[in-house]
Design a protein around this nucleic acid. Sequence first.
DNA 1: TTGTGTCCCATAGTTTCCCATGGTAACCCA
DNA 2: TGGGTTACCATGGGAAACTATGGGACACAA
Lengths: 157, 157
Amino acid sequence: MFLGTHINGVDVKGRVSAPADFRAVARDEALEGVYCWPAFDGPFLEGCGQGLMERFKAMLDAWDPYDEIRTAFARAVLGEARLLGFDATGRVTLPKEFAAHAGLDGQAAFVGLGDKFQIWNPDAHEAHRVAARETLKDNKHRLRPPQAAARGDGGAA
Amino acid sequence: MFLGTHINGVDVKGRVSAPADFRAVARDEALEGVYCWPAFDGPFLEGCGQGLMERFKAMLDAWDPYDEIRTAFARAVLGEARLLGFDATGRVTLPKEFAAHAGLDGQAAFVGLGDKFQIWNPDAHEAHRVAARETLKDNKHRLRPPQAAARGDGGAA
DNA sequence: TTGTGTCCCATAGTTTCCCATGGTAACCCA
DNA sequence: TGGGTTACCATGGGAAACTATGGGACACAA
């Protein structure tokens, strides 16, 4: 599971060390790298390992092949995604257009979100992080998911 | 179940012995460590074992992926959490930013809360404990959780 | 050739692992 | 019931392993 926030340096060649924790997650899924694509809803990158990528594919397979949403999703994620391989020391090289999309310059913040993660410009992420905490403080009583009442919630996974 | 309050020392390397009772709980869930993150609503840390973490994940999976509160929750918990592994003698190492968030300096109070626990600066916890008792005395007639009658569940988030 | 991208090697700093020790609480036996 | 013994818990320090990072060499394409 991708957890925590790790800030690592991006050198002039566009290389950045994937956090060791994240590498361990990817390798547990027998992948010597991570899938990565520019988010379609903000200035950051999204990434995942083999497991989630296969779930995406299964989801698409189960969908009406000519549904507009399906096509749009496939284009926005699969069409933009690349497999970034780890080098011998655990770094990945970010394509220029990826770095540009996320405004990465010198540093990158890897944010673990369970089965996927995001890569942010550290300053942009910090601003977002503070905002998220405020949102949560104001809404912590709504933390039960919408379906909880219907499903009984609390179910162990 | 995490129960009771235990105060242990934090050494210069940021290491602290997890209470033996807590270790036993984590190991019952086949986890050689504990998940831990800075609380979003106060100067303390929160922690849990495998069971609650998987319920968090299940809750997120059941939610609209782009709901604002869901995202804020994922960011504030998963994005800040880390799996702190036990060393051979049962200690965990607190990342510097964790110790800073909770104001831990020399000692840490582990407070069991059932399926999760908190880690406090002992002085801050004592003050908070007294205040919490007063709150409870003033509200003891409201102790039945709102959902209890309907669902028979009293989960707290 | 020139620019670009990949691979390899070197290094400082940090983190993790390992061993050793005192204190405390539980247990056993007389 | 009291004394002694054992096992476990919490803690301290040192060494090895790993992480993150920088620079240079090489291959390929324009």
